[in-house]
Simulated assay, not measured.
Amino acid sequence: MRIHMAGNQKFPSDLLFVVGLVVLTDIFVLIPVLNESFIRIVLGLPLVLFLPGYALVAVLFPTKTGLEGIERAALSVGISVAIVPLIGLVLNNTSFGIREGPLLVSLSLFVILACIVAYIRRRTLPENKAFGFSFKASAYSFLSEVLGKPQSSTEKVLRTFLAISVLALVGTVAYLSIVPHEQEPFTEFYILGADGKAENYTTEYVQGESGTVIIGVTNHEHRTVNYTLDVRLENESLPLPENLRNIKLDDNTTMEEPLEITPSVEGENMELQFLLFNETEKDTPYRDLRLWINVTEEA
């Protein structure tokens, strides 16, 4: 079997466009000044709803035969809808969690790596057999396929699915671009281990000795908030420094400060509570966290 290698073959225009769109999306999401623009939404939706599927379809079907343009488009949408939740599931089982940054990086890497693999697969094919993309020709072909008479019931289903997907995408972009959406106010409250990670918490103490946790608070309340922190061991408040007892945070700002815990009593499986109160409710904790610790008698 002969393998044809086109050593001087340029990076395909469709894959180059996809990679460029991914990079542009990352720029508009990550740069603070640009991420407030509606363009972020316009670019972000294809990254979630189309590009991952298109890149994977390009890997699976590198030749011109096998899939028509409308079938590629329909599969790209359907596969994207399947890929994104799977990536989210993987992230949810890591220390990164399902957050904007890790999800953006994961999707971007997936699309870019898939485009590179698709390019390598196309290079092994004769140039006249490898799938190519001309925007002008594809636009005419797409319109003729959509508006033309369907040849089979499968093609009818694919056209219907694609039409609904395109309408939903356009409608979503228009709605999100025109209608302002303010995120629900909330506060992030978390504790980290001494190494700054959500692990390796000190749970074994010797009476009179200290362990360190990092207290984290992020204000997303759309206003400046005065918080009060109370740390209790078996319902007895522990002494706190002033900068942690009373915390004033502007909107969209984060505070992370180390706190030394020095248990004065011994016991097993004791509840260490971290209670955060806001300025409107002084008796009921707004956010609360717990660790269970063991304290042994000093040797």
Rank of each mutant, 00 (worst) to 15 (best):
T228P: 00
I214R: 09
V157A: 02
L24S: 08
S37R: 05
F28Y: 13
P102I: 09
L104D: 12
T154E: 04
L104Q: 14
D250W: 00
K197T: 12
S144V: 06
I215R: 06
P102N: 09
L143N: 15
E36C: 03
G196M: 04
V111K: 04
V18G: 04
Q183E: 15
E182K: 14
A194S: 13
E199W: 00
A174H: 01
V57C: 05
L167N: 06
V90K: 09
L75S: 13
P12Y: 02
E127A: 11
Q151L: 05
D250E: 12
E281F: 00
S141N: 13
V231N: 04
V213H: 08
L259V: 05
L275K: 05
F133I: 10
C115V: 11
S141G: 09
R123Y: 03
V225C: 01
R287F: 04
A139M: 11
F50L: 14
F61R: 12
D283N: 14
S177G: 07
L289F: 08
L104I: 13
G66N: 06
F11P: 08
N219V: 07
L125G: 10
N200H: 01
P126E: 04
L21K: 01
V170S: 08
L143W: 13
V111P: 10
N226C: 00
A137F: 02
N92H: 05
L89T: 13
Y227W: 04
L107I: 12
L30K: 13
V19I: 13
D251P: 07
G171K: 09
V19K: 02
N235I: 05
V18Y: 01
L56M: 14
R72M: 10
Q273A: 09
V213F: 01
V225F: 00
F38I: 15
V217I: 15
L162N: 05
R121Y: 11
A118N: 14
L47H: 07
A118I: 12
V18D: 03
A73S: 11
G78T: 11
E256L: 14
D251C: 03
E260S: 12
L43D: 06
G53Q: 06
F189H: 01
G20C: 05
S37L: 10
E71T: 14
H222D: 11
K248M: 05
Y286V: 07
V19D: 05
L21C: 07
S264L: 09
P180G: 03
F135G: 08
D195A: 12
R223M: 06
E184K: 15
R123E: 03
F133L: 12
V265L: 05
T284P: 03
E298N: 15
T154R: 09
E298I: 13
L109K: 14
R290G: 01
G193T: 08
F38M: 12
F28G: 06
P150F: 00
D288V: 02
T253N: 09
G69R: 02
